[in-house]
Amino acid sequence: MTGTLRLDGIRIRIAGRELLSLSATIGPGEVLTVMGPSGSGKSTLLAFIAGTLGPPFEAQGSVVLGTRTLDRSPPERRRIGILFQDDLLFPHLSVGGNLAFAIPPDIRERAERRARVEAALTEAGLEGFSDRDPATLSGGQRARVSALRVILSQPEALLLDEPFSKLDAALRDQFRNFVFGEVRRNRLPTVLVTHDPADAAAAGGQLVAIARA
């Protein structure tokens, strides 16, 4: 039951200087790729969509997800998941703990929560990893857990902040396929920012290039 993500006349400025302006409509399961060099404000755009952009940035424009206008929602109510360059697994929780943290609270039953964790791990080829310390996993495994964590939170849209850039070439393809597979399966409107043309090609959706501001 995901909808369309609409970015309506977004303009972000810093100290009066325009950083970027953008309008786009992203359907369920589609990926909008935003390309630009570092320092061009790509991550700023994601922060705006996620609702975490603060001073010194000034932003206008509207984010609409399905039928909800998100402009006044705090980040945690937007149901927009985000994946960063680093996996950002919480180091004090086990792999299973990280995943359970993401499962919405309305799923109360402990057994049901655990079953979802196990099912997600199995699906990602990480069976039996639930009690492991995230620090003992390989980079590729950690990346997958971090993607599973986002999916388990049942987001209605997804933001990708160069999540493939730190993995080496072989892993990168594998993980990219994994993430885009999840995007399509869960029909998530997705915004990907990257400076790697291969990412854009793999995403296969609309492409926006922004210049260095």
Binding site: A50, E76, G81, V150, S153
Partner: peptide
Amino acid sequence: LAAAGLGAS
């Protein structure tokens, strides 16, 4: 930001 994206207050 990651936790907020997961719906954590």
